[in-house]
């Protein structure tokens, strides 16, 4: 059983289509006969890549310097009202993905299902699985009214697989008059420089939490990540405390990572954190508290003081 048409909200940074977009396209191919993308930018820029993953068409929306939410939602809603819309729109759990989904839900007066980690079609309706309570419970929710269904899907829910598709056709969607709602404009963009692999793509992630005691100790996490050719991450507690920039946060709020090895240093393993890393292939945890929930999912758990274990570990690695 499948839907006729799914549109995937495609995102790209510096010309590169996001991995979440490719994951959604891969799943959409399985769920629908026809898959297309909506892209806030020049459709030609991504037509080849998303075509390879099964998108037949890229609908471009020229948002100029606006935030994506208002114009993209208005353009999709216009297509739906003209009878040219999809049965479902899939978006990633990203800043712009959420904005577009939210604006679209009000435009179409349709519910949004968020935090999906799996999707299926049953009785011609889309059924979404979301993980709650830190991933301990799966909850399946069906869209109860007619589509278009709007689902926001967490990154890394599906493995991206190319389909050898041809370059997608491109078409521009018209944006209706947006009025006051489109008032927010981007005046500048800042990129935080970081060296080494990206957090959500690294094979090894070393993450630190409150157990480090003070912000200076985060350098141990960075050094260990460097020694293993990996990326440094952080729990929400120390991001909120201002020790580490938000871009390094792993968890429900923050990045989802699935590295080969995840090393949690001084992280107790609040549900908020576990959601972002429990898909890691191997988990090593170092924590003083034997009751820390992180030990419940660790392949190797060390009950010990990060301030003692980490320096010795760094030294051992340096001497190899």
């Amino acid at each position: 059983m499948s839907l006729d048409t799914i549109w995937v909200y495609a995102e790209a940074a510096e010309g590169e289509v996001s991995s979440t977009t490719l994951e959604l396209l891969t799943k959409a191919r399985e769920l629908a006969d026809t898959v297309a993308c909506v892209y806030a930018g020049d459709a030609d820029d991504i037509a080849e890549t998303v075509g390879a993953y099964g998108a037949e068409t890229v609908y471009g929306v020229d948002i100029d310097d606006a935030l994506a939410g208002v114009p993209v939602a208005a353009a999709i809603a216009e297509a739906v009202e003209a009878g040219d819309g999809p049965d479902a729109v899939l978006l990633g759990t990203t800043y712009d993905g959420r904005d577009v989904a939210s604006r679209l839900s009000v435009k179409l007066d349709k519910t949004v299902i968020s935090n999906c980690v799996d999707l299926e079609v049953a009785d011609d309706a889309l059924v979404c699985t979301a993980a709650i309570f830190g991933g301990a419970t799966d909850i399946k929710t069906k869209f109860a009214s007619e589509g278009p269904y709007i689902a926001i899907v967490r990154p890394k829910s599906f493995a991206a697989e190319a389909a050898d598709g041809d370059e997608a056709d491109t078409e521009d969607l018209d944006i209706p008059d947006l009025g006051a709602a489109a008032g927010a404009k981007v005046t500048d963009r800042f990129v935080e420089e970081s060296d080494g692999p990206k957090l959500d793509e690294a094979a090894v992630v070393v993450a630190g939490g409150r157990g480090l005691g003070e912000s200076e100790k985060f350098t141990m996490v960075v050094d260990l990540a460097k020694a293993l050719g990996g990326a440094a991450g952080a729990s929400r507690a120390i991001v909120d405390a201002g020790w580490v920039p938000y871009s390094q946060q792993v968890g429900q709020t923050g990045k989802v990572v699935k590295p080969d090895v995840y090393i949690a240093c001084g992280i107790s393993g609040a549900t908020q954190h576990l959601v972002g890393m429990k898909g890691s292939k191997n988990i090593i945890a170092i924590n003083k508290d034997p009751e820390a929930p992180i030990f419940g999912i660790a392949d190797l758990g060390v009950i010990g003081d990060v301030h003692k274990v980490m320096p010795l570990l760094l030294e051992a690695l340096a001497n190899r």
């Binding site: 349709k110 519910t111 299902i113 059924v127 993980a131 991933g135 301990a136 419970t137 799966d138 909850i139 399946k140 929710t141 069906k142 869209f143 109860a144 009214s145 090393i263 429990k278 090593i284 170092i286 034997p290 030990f295 419940g296 999912i297 660790a298 392949d299 190797l300 758990g301 060390v302 009950i303 010990g304 003081d305 003692k308 274990v309 010795l312 570990l313 030294e315 051992a316 690695l317 190899r320």
Partner: peptide, 30 residues
């Protein structure tokens, strides 16, 4: 516009070896 059709325990991940640091835990990690 939505209806919960199923609530289930998610597949759990088995815990592995838990060791207490005796000054040599870093060797186990290596």
């Amino acid at each position: 516009g939505q209806e919960i059709v199923e609530v289930a325990e998610a597949p759990t991940r088995e815990a592995g070896d838990i060791i207490e640091d005796d000054g040599e835990a870093h060797v186990k990690i290596v």
